[in-house]
Computed example of a mutant assay.
Amino acid sequence: MSASYPGAVNEDTRTQPTSPEDPVSTEDEAVIALAHSLLDAARTGDAAALLSLVDQGAPVDLRDGAGNSPLMLAAYHGHAELVRELAARGADVDLVNDRGQSPLAGVAFKGFTDVAEVLLEAGADPALGTPSALDTAVYFERAEMVALIEARRA
């Protein structure tokens, strides 16, 4: 499967280096580093680090430069229990990224039915996004994912 498919999540959450004309304060650098650690923890499934930051007040729906939230990154990388915990802490299960992709569509692209079940239980909309989760599952011939989505829609 090609990562250029519209269902692929952009994995580059690193900010571009600043120019000398665009100074960044030490406080800004600390905030940026904290955001990167939060997003990296979501991607790697480091629930202890990520949930601790969220529980201390970090925004659960923080977004990277491509509009991906921690829940999107955790879902896309197959971390079902982390997705469950983020949703329980108020993460928006339908927050689309800048390309119009929903977490459920990303999961359909990757084929993680366990994560899809968590998202659907949390109320994710399978018709949301471009392409939708259902369209993505059909396109990639993920019969189990299609059946799961269809069962929730019935």
Rank of each mutant, 00 (worst) to 15 (best):
V83A: 13
A87D: 11
A91M: 13
R142E: 07
L50D: 06
M72E: 03
E144I: 00
P20A: 09
A8T: 05
A116M: 08
E29I: 02
M1F: 10
A30G: 08
E11F: 07
D94W: 06
R99I: 00
G129E: 04
L104M: 04
A151K: 14
A137F: 02
M72N: 05
N10P: 06
S2I: 07
E85T: 09
D28T: 12
V93G: 13
A133S: 05
I32Q: 13
L104Y: 03
L134D: 00
A74S: 11
A80P: 05
Y5W: 13
Q101H: 04
G111F: 01
T18G: 10
R153S: 09
L53P: 01
S69G: 08
T113Q: 05
V138P: 00
T44E: 11
M72P: 05
A124N: 10
L86I: 10
L120Q: 08
S37E: 15
A147C: 00
Q101V: 12
G78K: 05
V83I: 06
S132Q: 01
L104S: 02
D55N: 14
L51E: 13
A108Q: 02
S69E: 08
S19G: 13
F109L: 03
D92A: 15
A127D: 12
N10H: 14
M1L: 12
D94V: 09
G7C: 14
A3T: 12
P126K: 06
L128N: 08
L148G: 06
D135Q: 14
E21R: 14
R152W: 01
P126H: 08
L82R: 08
D125R: 09
M145E: 01
R152N: 07
N10R: 15
T26G: 09
D22Y: 12
A91G: 14
P126W: 07
P20T: 10
V60L: 02
V9G: 06
A137M: 05
G129D: 05
A108F: 01
G45S: 12
D28N: 07
I32C: 01
E21Y: 14
V9N: 05
N97M: 09
V138S: 02
D55F: 01
L86V: 10
L62F: 00
D114R: 10
L62M: 12
E21L: 15
E21G: 11
G57H: 03
L120A: 10
L51M: 15
L62P: 03
A124I: 11
V118N: 08
R142P: 00
I149E: 00
A87S: 15
A66V: 03
V96G: 08
A8Q: 10
N68E: 14
L51F: 11
D55T: 09
A80R: 07
D114T: 13
E121P: 03
A124S: 15
V138H: 01
S102P: 03
L95I: 10
A108G: 03
V118S: 09
P131W: 04
E150F: 01
L148W: 02
D22W: 11
T136F: 02
L34K: 14
H36D: 15
A87Q: 11
